[in-house]
Amino acid sequence: MWLLILKKVKPNFSQLDPLLVYLRQKHEDQKFARSLEIGGTFLLVAFFIFFAIKPTFLTISKLVGDIRHKKNLTLQLRKKIDDIIAAQDLFAQVQEKYYLVDESLPNHPGFYQLNNLITSTAAQHQIYFDKLQYNLSEGEIFYKTNLTQSTSFTPSISFLTELSHSRRLLDLSGLSLSVNEASSSGQQLNLFLPLSIYYWSK
């Protein structure tokens, strides 16, 4: 019933149309102005971030980074200083034994001491070298000598054992024992001992 009445009574909108159009236009303009406002605000914020906040943040972050870097550096240097002090203390304790280092690896070739070592050790086992010749090369940290003598087996081994237990740093690169056919008893051997003797080259 009511539906029929409503269908029959049709209002005449022709007079209201311009008003509605105007209102719609007005509403759209307002919406557009509001969106321009929002967009402009965002752009302004971006501008503010770029020209005002960026330099401040960069300076702050650089300063914080530098402070952290300095703190780390201080800690590491303090640890290094502590280590050096500990090493100094330890070195002071072993300083009295420094002569051992000097005997083992002298800061000069030390021909005289080596000569004494070889001749006295060899003499204990009845081995006497006619000649000892040392070959010192420029720029090397060692020099060489060849020990050659005719001797028996046991003394030569004893000599070798004793020499290997000396404090001087020696490198025995090889050992050669061969029968000396010229000897009358036939028990004599030719001993050939190439040695490299190290020293602290500056």
Partner: peptide, 26 residues
């Protein structure tokens, strides 16, 4: 609106990234 939001976001990310880079480079 979209362009202004993205511009703002890009500038913000750029500043943060640059600041972090400064912090780490030391």
């Amino acid at each position: 609106i979209l362009i202004s939001i993205f511009t703002c976001l890009a500038v913000f990310i750029f500043v943060v990234q640059k600041s972090y880079d400064n912090l780490i480079s030391a």
